[in-house]
């Protein structure tokens, strides 16, 4: 196991990308299926409901559309382009990586059947997700989304696909039969995947550099102080960018940290990390992107410090 730092770096970057790619691909596939087979009307009906109802549906949608943060951004972009209101789409984007059966089960296993950790994790994700959705709920789609990368040099014709071709070319956005739509699903899946893989790779490079080249010794210095432990694990969650399906096991291993700090790690990571930040900045325009990045971090910091100071969870 004697490996040079660069070998470790290469192996960690590769393993992060290889681990996350199937989930990113699943998100891209889901996004493509929505684009090709689901008519816009089915989803735009959501917009006729009030903002609280939209947010509520977004928060629990992860239970029936399991996804991790690696794949949730392209799905969200697709949902928004399909006419799903921002209140529902944004709350889904931030909550679904945690509020889904796979992640909740992983948390339960990692914390040895401690339902309090599972419940607190879900609750602490829902609060900032709802807050961000409330802030962005009234935003028009045109003020929310950037054109996709592949279309950066093309006119914004309102099409949110990532196909990257000239829109003068024939390209159906309506409903297709299953077999007829299959090639289009594959094409969109691949291109959507490539769009997001750029940011996954960038995040993996940063996380790999952090793990391979920075010393681990600073962890022990901050674990005994709540005011340092919470922001330290929030920073760690952002830097190491571990998938929400796996991060509970890492958090469980950091047993020297107080539980509020572990909850900060478990709740911020799926909403904000090095692979999500550039994805947010590329999908959303500047102001909504800043809201999506800063509001969850601030909310989680305040909530976790409060939990620690009041002794609700130790």
């Amino acid at each position: 196991m004697d490996q040079s730092a660069f070998s470790i770096f290469a192996a960690i970057v590769s393993s992060i990308v290889l681990e996350a790619s199937p989930f990113l691909l699943l998100g891209s596939l889901l996004s493509a299926v929505l684009a090709v087979y689901v008519g816009d009307g089915a989803l735009t009906r959501l917009s006729r409901r009030g903002l609280p109802a939209q947010i509520g549906m977004g928060l629990v949608a992860g239970l029936i559309l399991p996804t991790c943060e690696c794949g949730v951004v392209p799905v969200t972009r697709r949902l928004l382009n399909k006419g799903v209101p921002p209140g529902a789409a944004v709350s889904f984007m931030l909550a679904a990586p945690v509020v889904n059966p796979v992640c909740l089960a992983a948390t339960w296993v990692a914390f040895q059947g401690d339902w309090r950790m599972v419940a607190w994790r879900a609750a602490l994700v829902m609060v900032p997700a709802a807050a961000v959705a409330w802030v962005l709920g009234g935003t028009q789609r045109a003020d929310l989304l950037r054109p996709t990368l592949a279309m950066a040099n093309q006119s914004d014709n309102g099409c949110g696909c990532a196909c990257g071709h000239e829109h003068e070319a024939q390209h159906d956005h309506g409903r297709h039969g299953f077999l007829r739509g299959l090639p289009e699903v594959l094409r969109l899946t691949g291109l959507e995947f490539l769009d997001m893989a750029l940011f996954l790779i960038a995040g993996a490079l940063a996380a790999g550099a952090f793990k391979a080249f920075l010393p681990q010794s600073w962890l022990g210095l901050v674990s005994g102080n709540l005011w340092l432990a919470v922001p330290a694990l929030m920073l760690l969650a952002v830097l190491i960018s571990i998938c929400s399906e796996a991060d509970a096991f890492v958090a469980a291993s950091l047993s020297m940290f107080p539980r509020p700090a572990l909850l900060a790690f478990l709740t911020l990571g799926p909403m904000l990390d090095l692979k999500l930040m550039p994805a947010f900045l590329s999908v959303f325009k500047r102001r909504p992107a800043l809201v999506v990045i800063t509001l969850p971090a601030l909310t989680i910091f305040v909530l976790c410090i409060s939990l620690g100071l009041t002794g609700v969870i130790r």
Partner: peptide, 19 residues
């Protein structure tokens, strides 16, 4: 399908090749 090579497309192709 016909299309132009945009900077964004080139970036993602380059990153993937580097990876």
């Amino acid at each position: 399908r016909p299309g132009r090579e945009t900077p964004g497309r080139l970036a993602r192709q380059t990153f993937l090749a580097l990876f």
